[in-house]
Write a protein that binds this DNA or RNA. Structure first.
Length: 112
DNA sequence: TCCGTGACGCAAA
DNA sequence: CTTTGCGCCACGG
């Protein structure tokens, strides 16, 4: 069970139509204060990995862009809109509405 | 073993 | 609103 495996484990539990932030996923994976690791992990996700990577956005409710992604950022937005998530004119998601509330059991597990 | 490489978050100015 | 600076580290070659 590698660090990245723990991250993927959390992401797999985000329900359709909801999103989590990188920081949130990091905490639930027992990596408080290390949100970058989540980004690094998602960067390595492959299409056959069964991980809904599109449901992870940054703390501002935006899809994070990077030259390295080569268009998958637009794919991410498309996938989310297909799940019913609405983007503002500024390209942002209302986290108050769509943020995933993880089950208490998961939170307690993260706190160890 | 060493090193380059990154989808972030937050506070301050 | 924007720009800095810093924390932080697994993974592949």
């Amino acid at each position: 069970m590698s660090t990245y495996d723990r991250i993927y484990e959390i992401v797999r539990q985000i329900p359709v139509g909801q999103v989590a932030t990188y920081g949130q996923v990091a905490e639930l994976a027992g990596l408080f204060g290390k949100p970058r690791l989540v980004g690094y992990a998602l960067y390595r996700v492959t299409s056959d990995a069964d991980v809904p990577w599109q449901r992870v956005v940054n703390a501002k409710g935006e899809v994070s862009h990077s030259p390295q992604r080569q268009g998958t950022d637009y794919l991410q937005r498309d996938l989310l809109e297909a799940e019913g998530i609405v983007f503002s004119a500024a390209g942002k998601i209302d986290l108050r509405q769509y943020r995933w509330q993880p089950p208490l059991e998961l939170v307690l597990k993260a706190e160890g």
